[in-house]
């Protein structure tokens, strides 16, 4: 399996059949994750970031879901595997942590039992050895006195601790890919800082690939190496994290970055806004999906669908006019600087 990239998603399309007809939640998503790399997937509610993650793990109900495209994990297309084979991969080679640790943990089992479970299933260890490993994992995530904690139930510990337990559980089989779906959204900032640090340290230690799904561009700047920005089921911009923050290309990314209040920005200025709201998935615009909200949209944008284009510096972008927009903005910056 050497020689293959860790994960390569190609033209992934995830469709749900519902009362209203077929809904395409993920529409042609392509990206790659390598060992030791953190890919951030950002976007607002309904952009398909979580469905992308669930598709990789094949967690969706396959009676009403149709996948197209490829999800190549170490060279094997996960979408073509039978469910039985997926069981060996889920929780073993690819693990996932979720936003809400309280509902993701089983309230009637102790923390130790829940971590040991996946160790017993995937690694053929006995109960006692699995428990020892569970203690070890908890220690790794920075939980004080883990030998006592393994006997506690999820309700007895705090939110930050629960998220650590989730991480311990996810990493217990030393997966090569970790998918973190909004892992810190429900946590306070000081706890968020702790958890991000734990994920980052363990990534280095285990040389994992990480997919960090989040709506928070601040989190992306802190932990990611590359970023894919999603809008209405599509990746609209993908680039190296430094490039994204230094020169965002897509009008949506630019708008998003400008509309966040920061602790260093100019307070007297009004916040930038992106007009309108994200359209519903059963009613997506015909041309460029962002066109109805885009200040630069032309007739072409309304009717013709832009492809994800790769630029010289490796940045990928889905926009008809990104070149002109860049030039125009650069010119207006010169004018404002001069006045």
């Amino acid at each position: 399996m050497e020689g293959y990239p860790l994960l390569e998603v190609k033209e992934l399309r995830t469709r749900f059949s519902s009362e209203k007809g077929t809904i395409t939640a993920v529409d042609g998503v392509t990206f790659k994750v390598d060992y030791g790399e953190t890919l951030g997937v950002v976007g607002e509610s309904g952009c398909g970031k979580s469905v992308t993650a669930e598709s990789i793990m094949r967690l969706l109900n396959e009676k009403s879901t149709r996948y197209d495209g490829e999800i190549n994990f170490k060279g094997v297309n996960l979408l073509s595997l039978p469910e039985k084979k997926m069981l060996d991969i889920r929780g073993n080679e690819i693990s996932m942590i979720f936003q809400d640790a309280m509902t993701s943990l089983n309230p009637v089992f102790t923390i130790g039992d829940q971590i040991a479970e996946s160790i017993i299933v995937h690694q053929n260890l006995g109960k006692k050895e699995a428990m020892e490993k569970a203690v070890e994992m908890l220690r790794l995530t920075g939980i004080p006195s883990p030998e006592k904690r393994v006997h506690e139930y999820p309700h007895e510990i705090s939110g930050g601790m629960r998220q650590r337990v989730m991480i311990a559980m996810a990493l217990s089989c030393q997966p090569s890919l970790l998918i973190a779906d909004e892992p810190t959204t429900a946590l306070d900032v000081t706890i968020q800082a702790q958890i991000l640090e734990v994920i980052n340290d363990l990534k280095e230690e285990l040389n994992m690939g990480v997919i960090m799904i989040t709506h928070d561009l601040g989190v992306v700047a802190e932990v990611c190496t590359r970023v894919a920005v999603m809008y209405l089921g599509q990746v609209i911009e993908e680039s190296d994290v430094d490039a994204l923050f230094a020169s965002p290309r897509h009008p949506y990314t630019r708008g998003l970055l400008k509309s966040i209040p920061t602790i260093t920005g100019d307070r007297s200025q009004k916040l930038h806004t992106i007009q309108g709201v994200v359209p519903a998935l059963d009613n997506v615009p015909k041309g460029c999906r962002f066109a109805p909200r885009c200040p630069y949209a032309t007739d072409k944008c309304m009717t013709e669908f832009p492809l994800l284009e790769t630029l010289e510096n490796g940045q990928k972008i889905r926009c008809w006019h990104h070149q002109e927009i860049m030039e125009r903005e650069a010119a207006s910056d010169v004018i404002t600087a001069a006045t």
Binding site: P144, S158, T190, I191, Q192, G218, V241, F245, I260, T264
Partner: peptide, 23 residues
């Protein structure tokens, strides 16, 4: 600690974190 824990959406402004321990 609270101020230093806020993730800043800007790569140029890296700073020293004060991570407070515990809950």
């Amino acid at each position: 600690a609270l101020l230093s824990a806020i993730p800043i959406p800007d790569r140029k402004q890296r700073r020293e974190r004060i991570i407070i321990k515990g809950d």
